[in-house]
Structures are given as C-alpha cells and as structure tokens.
Amino acid sequence: MRISAAQRTENENRIRAAMDRLLRGEIPPGGKCDIKTLAAEAAVDRTAFYGTRPYAHLRVEFERRLNAMHEAGKIPDPREAQIARLKAENAKLKERLAQSEEAVDELTDFRSQALARLAAQHEEIVHLRESATGTSRVSRLPAPRTTVIGSCS
C-alpha cells in the first residue's frame, strides 16, 4: 500500500520525535534505545527502516547519533549505563582480587622462609649448647632470680 507525501512527512516527524525522546533517555517500560522501540514509539512498521525502504535514512541517522553519544560517554538507556558501570566495577574488583591473591602468596612465602630460618637458628642454638657443655672454658650463668613485685617484708 502506497502512502501519500503528507503521510510520509507525518511519519518522518513522528519518527524524529520518537528518536529525540529515546536519545534523551525517555525509554518506555520494556523498551530499549533501539530500532524496534523507535518503530513502536513512532507507530511505524519496523521493516520500513531496512534496505531500500522509505525510512532507512532515519535508521542510519538514529544509529549515528546513538554511536556519537556512546563515544561521548553518554548512554541514553539506563540499563545499558548500569551494565557498563557494573562491568567497570567488576573489572576493578577482579584487579583487586588478583592483587590480594598476589599479596597472600608473597606473605605465605615470607612465612615459610621465616619458619625455616627460625628452625635453622633453633638447631644451631641446640648444637651450640651441646658443644658448650663438653668444654670446661665455658661457664654457665646462673638462672635469673625471680622477685615478687609488691611484697612487703
């Protein structure tokens, strides 16, 4: 069915008005900032936006404006903005988790090395004590006296 020039102009005006609303972020419930929602909002058949159909140039304009907004960091669809924000947050959390895991690994290695050093030092002390008991030149220090603090005689 052919449409008149007046109907075509009216349809184009409705499409442009719907395009402006969508790009301002006025997304209808259940819709997105896409051609399907644009067609529904303008009450135009979606197939009219593809190929050599009458409103293909408006689809190209809509996609160009939408891409320009994305490049400028403006996302008209609140769900898309939320998805982008959550993806960025997820990437930061993954990076923090990797850093935390690396720190835990480093601390675990440090702990193992410290325990090994302490064990070696203990063995050396035991060895020195055993060798010291056999020589007469080394004298043992008396055990420290323990005093009770606060007692009166």
Rank of each mutant, 00 (worst) to 15 (best):
M1D: 13
M1Q: 00
M1F: 04
S4G: 09
Q7A: 08
T9R: 15
E12G: 01
N13A: 13
N13I: 12
N13W: 05
R16T: 12
R16K: 13
R16Y: 08
M19N: 03
R21S: 15
L22M: 03
L23W: 07
R24G: 01
R24A: 05
P29C: 09
D34R: 05
I35R: 02
K36C: 11
A39S: 14
E41P: 00
A42P: 06
A42I: 00
A42D: 02
A43R: 10
D45Q: 08
D45I: 09
D45G: 07
T47G: 01
A48L: 11
R53S: 12
R53C: 09
Y55K: 10
A56S: 12
R59E: 13
R59S: 09
R65H: 05
L66T: 04
A68C: 09
A68W: 05
H70Q: 07
E71R: 14
K74A: 06
K74N: 09
K74I: 12
D77M: 04
D77C: 11
D77N: 15
D77S: 13
E80K: 04
E80Y: 01
A81V: 03
Q82F: 07
L86H: 04
A88S: 10
A88N: 05
N90M: 10
R96G: 02
L97F: 00
Q99V: 02
D105W: 11
D105R: 15
T108E: 15
D109P: 05
R111H: 07
R111Q: 13
Q113H: 11
A114C: 08
A114T: 12
L115H: 15
A116T: 14
I125P: 01
H127P: 01
R129P: 04
G134N: 09
T135H: 09
T135E: 13
S136I: 05
R137S: 06
R137Q: 02
L141M: 13
P142I: 02
T147Y: 11
V148L: 14
C152R: 14
